[in-house]
Amino acid sequence: MKTASELLRTEGLTKRFRGLVANDSIDFTLKAGELRCVIGPNGAGKTTLISMISGHQQPSNGAIWFQGQNITKLSIIERARRGISRKFQTPTLFDNLSAYENVELAVLRTGCPPRKRRSRILEVLDLVRLVDLADTTASTLSHGQRQWLEVGLLLANDAILLLLDEPTAGMTVEETASTGRLIRRLGQELGLSAIIIEHDINFIRNLQAPVTVLHLGRVLVEGSFHDIEHDEQVRSVYLGDQ
């Protein structure tokens, strides 16, 4: 499934909030089927970066290219329809609907024919390990399960590029490990791409994906986790002696 073709590219992406420069001329490239971790201290501009890619914020300068097309001016809706789907830092679900109904809503946006809808919903719920909780109201799921359900919404929505903002926040060690396996599976088996913002260094180490380190709104360094963890600059501004 993996191809080496470019999926996403940002050119000089900049976001200013009055005097504050949250992202400063970021050039970032992601290949189709690639998983990429984005790390950095609080305030480095990680969430702002994916907000601009998802369309939740408009850049002050720069351009975003997705599948060879300039999407900088497109709305959230148009980007989602092209396959860019975002998971928020705090699970953002349809709280009073069941897990099944949550995923159903995401499927309804796709071209899935009605007769195949149910099997598609169950397939996605199975993928995120929630098929036994299909009838459970989303608000009563555990925090980790809610995180998975939100990932399920993205999958059911036929996403090509997943923007995952802290997908393991608030999870137990076991849930974090399961999430890591799920994300690897999405890349390896389904050929999906993902940009993953995380603070859990063990999770990033185990994911074995390339890492981009942001600091003060700029790309500090990019490379494998091995390279990153031995980089003096990264150790100085973020990792410390971990």
Partner: peptide, 10 residues
């Protein structure tokens, strides 16, 4: 239930 989430789904 959640209009913003629905918009984010396209």
């Amino acid at each position: 239930e959640n209009e913003d989430r629905l918009i984010s789904l396209g």
